[in-house]
């Protein structure tokens, strides 16, 4: 294998990993607060089109990222109103959000077909970003670095801040948190909005970085992989990062298998691998009875004070 090929492969894996890492981090925080939002795919698509649309209209990709976050958060808040204020079923509502997001993004996207968004400039000087070897470190979109910075930030927030402690408490035992005097619904709204914003930015990675064009359903099911990733990671931030890169490698193998027959197994096998590995991880977690790596106790349950 040549050095060029290895560098190209690493760049491919990083590109495939970043959107599921962003969306997975958001969903991790949502699930830690006790809410199961299955609408990640829909929120990613809404983020993809709002990011793309804002960039096309303002010629500013940074505003586009804000637009993607806002689009994702708004669609998540719609979910929040339904499940938190109106106590609808979280699973059904989340699935509906995925379908709704797919449809709404296609509808909005109609007027943007064929347009091209202004790309991000590199944040590093060209001598680094275009360097044949150093581009492995410096040649990425700012969103890649943003995702990597968010990992320790989210870990620190959950583990070391009081707000993070309260968020975990709400997901662990909503009634106790309420009786001590915390605002369960408020915490969950905030978590859901954060999860939506992160999914939206993850979606925008497709429409603003991978291909600076809009296509229907361009996230291609990665929202579902992000959901599996959170379970695979056992609701832990560090493992989420490792799992995201592991899934990224599996997705890269799928691409290579499709494109060149490079791999010895059919591409469908690699496409199924993330889900298969999630089942294996779940079985492993439950067989060991590991409390720290199991789902928040109130995950998916409505809070009725």
């Amino acid at each position: 294998m040549s050095l060029d090929f290895i560098i190209a492969a690493i760049i491919t894996v990083v590109g495939l990993t970043t959107p599921i890492l962003l969306a997975g981090l958001g969903e991790l925080v949502v699930e830690k607060a006790g809410v199961l939002n299955l609408g990640v795919e829909g929120m990613m698509l809404i983020g993809a089109i709002s990011g793309f649309g804002v960039t096309v209209m303002t010629f500013n990709p940074w505003l586009g990222v804000l637009g993607a976050a806002a689009g994702g958060a708004l669609s998540a808040l719609l979910f929040g109103v339904l499940v938190l204020s109106l106590n609808s079923n979280q699973v059904a509502t989340g699935l509906a959000l995925s379908i709704f997001g797919t449809g709404l993004s296609s509808l909005i996207g109609l007027s943007f077909v064929g347009r091209i968004a202004a790309p991000f400039g590199s944040i590093f000087p060209a001598s680094l970003a275009k360097h044949p070897i150093l581009q492995v470190f410096f040649g990425y979109s700012p969103l890649v670095y943003f995702a990597l910075i968010m990992v320790p930030l989210v870990a620190w927030f959950l583990k070391s801040t009081r707000a993070g402690l309260i968020l975990r408490a709400v997901g662990e035992n909503d009634h106790s948190a309420h009786s001590i005097g915390y605002n369960v619904i408020g915490v969950r709204y905030a978590a859901i909005a954060f999860g939506g914003a992160m999914a939206g930015i993850g979606g925008a990675y497709f429409s603003m970085v991978i291909t600076p064009m809009w296509a229907e359903k361009m996230t291609a099911g990665r929202g579902w992989i992000a959901l599996a990733l959170v379970v695979f990671a056992g609701w832990r931030t560090g493992r989420l990062l490792a799992g995201a890169y592991f899934f990224g490698i599996l997705m890269a193998l799928e691409l290579y298998a499709k494109a060149s027959g490079f791999s010895f197994l059919p591409s469908q096998f690699w496409a199924a691998m993330p889900y298969l590995m999630t089942v294996v991880a779940l079985t492993f977690i439950s067989s060991r009875g590991n409390v720290g790596a199991s789902a928040p106790a109130c995950l998916g349950k409505p809070f009725l004070p």
């Binding site: 009081r162 402690l165 408490a169 035992n173 409390v291």
Partner: peptide
């Protein structure tokens, strides 16, 4: 001190006390 404790099973003693 409640009869039905308002504790968080998956968290440590320290975290439980901090929450109170």
């Amino acid at each position: 001190v409640f009869q039905h404790f308002s504790l968080f099973e998956a968290m440590t003693v320290l975290e439980n006390i901090a929450l109170g």
